[in-house]
């Protein structure tokens, strides 16, 4: 890679797909016979009721969990057969509920993103520095780079974690409920960052708790119930009152956001 160009990520086609996955946790089968190709270059939001297996799916896609049956295919190969470093160079994961040690600064955190690219005794390279710089700048964190994480707002802190995954320079980004603990303003801050990352060509998959935000910020919606995908497609095409009922057991009407054009729920009421 040329050190002069901003090393966002290697410009190559990337594909990630789940094939006939069965994932169990303890004695419970959480996911059964699930197949899902991620659309390259798009933001995919996985939605569904609590306990439907969305986080389990994301963690299986990220190779944190191993499926009992089926495969996750990364660039044509079974992800479980690939070395963990190779996977980490292709795919960055932001888990739910992250904690950084006290006193760690934004830049310290972002620098961790370079680990999959460093050899055992390899020094910090100009390329690493450039990637960290680019990640900080992409997440609007340059002025806060030396600030300790525990002194930031929730939104800033989450942007710092995302910046770490940006510095990993991977074409694929998996985010588990990136906005779950944030208030509205901070949620939008994070979703807009995710949109910018997608516009640079990354493929993003995220678990999103809030259906409205998912429709607003995702290109592809994956609706899950009880470990199965019941609908998959652009939000405006697949979101219907019937789907919402299947997901959350509530009645509603679907209207169009007059500004963004994305579908919205109205008149939500108990079944």
């Amino acid at each position: 890679m040329n050190a002069k160009s901003t090393p966002i990520f290697t410009d190559q086609a990337v594909s990630l797909a789940a094939q006939a996955l069965k994932v169990t946790r303890g004695h419970n089968t959480v996911i059964e016979a699930l197949s899902l190709p991620l659309t390259p270059g798009a933001v995919t939001a996985i939605v569904g009721p609590n306990g439907c297996g969305k986080s389990t799916l994301l963690n299986t896609l990220a190779r944190i969990l191993a499926p009992e049956q089926g495969q996750v295919i990364l660039n044509g190969r079974d992800i479980q057969q690939l070395p963990s470093r190779t996977v980490a160079q292709q795919l960055a994961l932001l888990p739910q509920d992250t904690h950084a040690p006290e006193g760690m600064t934004v830049e310290d955190l972002v620098r961790f993103g370079r680990q999959p690219h460093q050899g055992l005794f390899q020094q910090w390279s100009p390329e690493d520095q450039a990637a960290v710089q680019a990640a900080l700048s992409a997440a609007d964190l340059l002025p806060l780079r030396y600030a300790p994480l525990d002194q930031l707002s929730g939104g800033q802190r989450q942007r710092a974690w995302i910046a770490m995954t940006i510095a990993q320079s991977t074409p694929l980004l998996l985010l588990d409920e990136p906005t779950s603990a944030l208030d509205l303003g901070h949620q939008i801050e994070v979703f807009e960052l995710i949109r910018r990352l997608a516009s640079q060509g990354r493929t993003v998959a995220m678990v999103v708790h809030d259906l409205l935000s998912a429709c607003r910020y995702a290109d592809q919606l994956v609706a899950m119930v009880a470990g199965e995908v019941i609908a998959h497609g652009p939000p405006s095409e697949i979101l219907t009152p019937e789907l919402v009922f299947q997901l959350y057991r509530v009645h509603c009407d679907i209207i169009e956001d007059p500004f963004s054009g994305s579908p919205m729920l109205a008149n939500v009421r108990r079944a």
Binding site: S84, A88, Q89, L94, P95, T98, H99, P101, G113, Q115
Partner: peptide
Amino acid sequence: ALGESVARGLGEK
């Protein structure tokens, strides 16, 4: 120190 999942996401074991 960043947690089990984060470390694994970074390619560590």
